[in-house]
Design a binder for these strands. Structure first.
Lengths: 214, 214, 214, 214
DNA sequence: AATGAATGAGGCTTCATTCAT
DNA sequence: TATGAATGAAGCCTCATTCAT
């Protein structure tokens, strides 16, 4: 894909290699504003500064635009965030904080959460895209957290909890927050991400039960 | 669910009052199978046993069908589940178990989770419907849980946690499970709902931290 | 054209059953005027007195229109003409005259020859349609002539000629005339069909060789 | 066919003058494979070894390509074949055999018959091209045959037949054979051209009638 | 209460052609 | 001479919605 063939000359060439990204940016804008179905290729093209037909020089179809969006906008993030969490291998609790903070930051960005949101919207109609998203984004993310939990248990930082349930308890609240804010247009609690992370970590690590309940 | 089919009465009656429910059932089927946009009114009508035009005798538009679906299929559930949880007012922990179990049961039913899923899909395009869903379903549900948490704190069953974070910690995992299963077509962990609830409650109440971390 | 299926009531019903034929007529008009590719569904619809979309209530696609045209306009003619020729079973020479006259009459009608012409035009792109035409129209026609020749030989009316070559000698001139006139817009020799048939039969039956050549 | 590729000269030459022929060859290939409308200029260019835009350095439009094809591929053949027939001026019957054989050979070549076939396909849309073909190819060919017939009559080799009908009787079978084979994808009788010519000449010269019918 | 024929806006996609480099 | 990015007209087809019967 990386059309960085700008070996020849600086700006001489009709900056064709910048096009795909410009189009994707415009596509994301439209998808966010209108949803996948109501977004019009022509509007995307106009916002990207070209004509309808030009979009098809870079992407085969509307669906291909969405696929590319997943590929180039989200997939890289998975690696970045899980790598960060994994780096703190000897201190799972710290890694957890790192992870929650990282994802919270991403999720609070409407342009980023928009892609998962789109995937949810069209999952039924584009099973292939849905499966790709699950394999390339969701499953690796989930697995990274689960590993983190298991390591924490081994190291004695965490109790002998069910790793699957614990993983859900970590990711779920982030999902809830994102859907509440970006989908339902509800008031976000993410105004102060640091506070969000602290409060969620407290609940997560210490539980909500009164101490004598233990 | 509650199909008020007028079976009791003789067959000569036109069962006119059963029509709307039959149409909604058919609509939900189509929406589940194809998504809101790809579902065709004509198919819905056929599956409901009437003609395209007749649908418009009962519902003003495609959007109205979805609105009615929220209204008649989901909204009642909110009351039912929160009421159940509220009944156990003196034992918030038990209420929590009740709530999680109830919602887990609902959510494992694809026909029921389909509606929230649809709302997610079209939220951007139908802000009014989205707002209605938030006000009639999401917000009441969330508020009920938050109340439950606050009461638990007052009663000394729960720690002095952030009620908002705790609420997210309760609902989030359910959301995660539902999306994972019904949207991403991933493997569900809900095979045994009782086990799911137990594990999740354990994590939630006791936290994942090792006891000496407290 | 005149679908007289008006059994139910006079003009009461939105004459839906007359539609297909009206559309086909309009389609043929457009196809003749513009060719298959340049003909626009919308123009066909307008000429048939309905809207673009209505055409699709009766025909699945543009190709389907052409298919139906072959089916309803041409296929029946094959039977009619070959049957006429076959009726004169005891006098192959008379049958030949009958056949040539019948086909000459059909071919001189631009609306009728238009369909074979269309088939020629799109044969490469719609092999299925082409094959259907060959099997349903061309081959039966050719076979009928060949039978006629063989019978003539048996009856002693015709020489021991190659039936295949003779068949080509009968159909070829008709084809030539039709293409010349309707495709190349050349001057027709068909001004007087009777004369055309007489002259062609003379050449065909007696050959062009001087008698002493025999 | 006759690709005048400038192989002899060193490779450093741009062989600019060979380009048009290369393009036409590629164009014919595509036209044969896809038909005029479905053939894409870009594919033609690629097959000719240059870029889309370069085609327009040599030809003004897609239609011009077809025009040039008629001009350079077919028109010359007319002269060649009719000249051959004319050379045998003193023996019209021999000339006829020569002509039929020559045309049969040409026609059995799909790359050659493809052009008339294309003309048939687009005649309605490009009247100018159609007229040019008629004047430059069809009419001269037809006239040559008619002259041949008249001369044969004068020389006493042929009967006093209608020259127009006789001409149709000569060309028609060739047309039939070509259409049957190349357009309808039917089984060809041209496996053995010599036999084809012989049989057709027999029918043509001697007629199909039994001798006592004369 | 019901039908289903009809409408017509709307969108995706294709591709001949142009033109800056 | 040559490129290939870009244009934009054009057409097929879908489908929610209407309405005469």
């Amino acid at each position: 894909m990386a059309r960085t063939t700008t070996k020849p000359k600086p700006t001489w060439r009709r900056r064709a290699d910048a096009r795909p990204d410009e189009i994707l940016t415009a596509a994301l804008d439209e998808f966010i504003a209108k949803g996948f179905d109501s977004a019009r290729i022509e509007d995307i093209a106009t916002n990207a500064g070209l004509s309808k037909g030009a979009v098809y020089l870079y992407f085969d179809s509307k669906e291909a635009l969405l696929r590319a969006l997943v590929e180039r906008e989200i997939a890289p993030l998975v690696g970045r965030v899980t790598a960060a969490a994994e780096a703190e291998a000897q201190d799972p609790k710290a890694a957890l904080t790192l992870f929650l903070g990282g994802v919270a930051a991403l999720i609070s960005n409407p342009r980023i959460f928009a892609v998962p949101r789109l995937v949810i919207s069209i999952a039924a109609r584009f099973p292939e895209l849905r499966d790709h998203y699950r394999r390339a984004v969701a499953e690796p993310g989930r697995a990274a957290i689960e590993r983190l939990i298991r390591r924490g248990i081994e190291l004695g930082q965490f109790r002998q909890v069910d790793p699957v349930a614990a993983t859900r308890a970590i990711i779920g609240p982030l999902l809830f927050e994102a859907l509440w804010t970006h989908v339902l247009a509800g008031e976000s609690a993410l105004g102060d991400p640091a506070k969000f992370v602290r409060a969620q970590i407290d609940v997560l690590v210490n539980g909500i039960g009164a101490s004598n309940d233990r």
